[in-house]
């Protein structure tokens, strides 16, 4: 495949992705601070966290679910991210090793 064509496609896709990243920020300049859209955005993060975690658990299978639950519980008890990640990843590896 022609190197220049591949390079061109990569640049086009790169610009597309950047437009998506910056587009919401630029368009939101015209949004009212007390409108419905603003309230939606204020309430969105926690709900998107949950949806992100569910999607991640699904792609990681049962081992992913075990690891995520262990990480969440460890974080709630210790409030230390490194401990939570270590425990979660260890649990996921163990669950995967026993065939879950």
């Amino acid at each position: 495949m022609d190197d220049l064509k591949v390079l061109g496609v990569i640049c086009v896709l790169g610009v597309t992705c950047y437009v998506m990243r910056a587009g919401g920020y630029v368009l939101a300049a015209s949004m009212r601070d007390d409108g419905i859209a603003a309230r939606f955005l204020q309430l969105a993060p926690g709900n998107l966290f949950i949806a992100f975690i569910v999607g991640g658990c699904l792609s990681g299978g049962l081992a992913g679910l075990v690891g995520t639950v262990v990480a969440l519980v460890t974080m709630a008890i210790t409030a230390r991210e490194w401990a939570a990640l270590g425990a979660g990843f260890g649990a996921a590896l163990a669950a995967s090793a026993i065939g879950l």
Partner: peptide, 10 residues
């Protein structure tokens, strides 16, 4: 696959 999900879970 799992570390980003676990990190967000924390």
């Amino acid at each position: 696959t799992l570390l980003p999900t676990m990190f967000i879970a924390t």
